[in-house]
C-alpha cells in the first residue's frame, strides 16, 4: 500500500482540453459548479508597436491541471472544526460528508481551491483520488482520461525519483505552505510562484 499517493502533471504536454476535468465530473457525478479537478490557463505579455507593426512582447500562456494535492501538511485537516476532514494512512485526504457542518473554513484555508461546497447538500466535497477505483486496481478517472499523458499518479517518492521534486510554479502557491503531494514538470514559459507577470485567463469561462 502506498504511503503517500500523489499526482504528477507535465505542463509541456497539457493542451488545455479539459478531458480530465470532464472525466472527474462524470465519474463522481458532480453537478455544474462543483469542481474537484480543474484546468486553468495562465498567461501574460503584451503587444508593442515596432516600425508601424504591432509585435508580440513576451507573450506566453500555459495550462495547469490541479485537484486536491492530498498535502503532507494538510491545512484543511488542521482547521476543520468537526473532524470531517481527515488524512488516511495512504495519504489521501477525504471529507466525510456525513460529519461536515458546511462551515466552509477549509475553503478559506486551502491555497489550491480544492474543497468544493455542494449547496444542495450543505456540505463540502473534494477529490477522493478515486479511492474506489484504486481499490479495484484501476487508475483515477482524470489520469485515464488525459489524451496527452500529461497526468500520472503514484507513490510520491517514486514520482519524485522519476520526475524530480518541483511542486510549484505560478499561479500555484508556495509549496512550503502545505507540502503538496504533487510533482510537476514545468513548461519553458513557466513563471515562478509569486510572479506577477501573468494572470489566470478567462476564469469565468473556465468554471
Amino acid at each position: 500500500m502506498a504511503k503517500q499517493y500523489a499526482f504528477y502533471f507535465d505542463a509541456n504536454s497539457c493542451i488545455d482540453c479539459k478531458a480530465c476535468q470532464v472525466a472527474c465530473q462524470d465519474k463522481n457525478d458532480l453537478p455544474g459548479g462543483v469542481i474537484w479537478r480543474k484546468v486553468i490557463e495562465y498567461g501574460g505579455g503584451d503587444w508593442v508597436m515596432q516600425d508601424n507593426v504591432m509585435v508580440p512582447n513576451g507573450i506566453f500562456t500555459y495550462a495547469l491541471s490541479t485537484s486536491c494535492m492530498h498535502c503532507q501538511d494538510p491545512i484543511c485537516v488542521h482547521v476543520c472544526p468537526s473532524g470531517a476532514m481527515t488524512k488516511r494512512e495512504d495519504g489521501i485526504v477525504l471529507v466525510d460528508e456525513d460529519l461536515c457542518l458546511g462551515c466552509r473554513y477549509c475553503e478559506w484555508a486551502c491555497p489550491y481551491g480544492a474543497p468544493a461546497y455542494r449547496p444542495e447538500l450543505g456540505v463540502m466535497s473534494k477529490c477522493t483520488f478515486c479511492e474506489d477505483l484504486l481499490a479495484a486496481g484501476e487508475n483515477p478517472a482524470c489520469v485515464d482520461a488525459c489524451v496527452t499523458r500529461a497526468l500520472d499518479y503514484g507513490e510520491l517518492s517514486e514520482l519524485q525519483a522519476k520526475y524530480g521534486d518541483l511542486a510549484e510554479m505560478a499561479p500555484l502557491p508556495d509549496a512550503k505552505l502545505t507540502s503538496p503531494s504533487f510533482v510537476l514538470t514545468s513548461y519553458r514559459a513557466s513563471q515562478a510562484t509569486g510572479s506577477r507577470v501573468g494572470k489566470i485567463i478567462d476564469l469565468a469561462e473556465e468554471f
Partner: peptide, 11 residues
C-alpha cells in the same frame, strides 16, 4: 452560515 446547521454541535 453553516450548510448543515443541525450538525453545529460537532463544531
Amino acid at each position: 452560515h453553516l450548510g448543515s446547521p443541525l450538525r453545529a454541535y460537532r463544531a
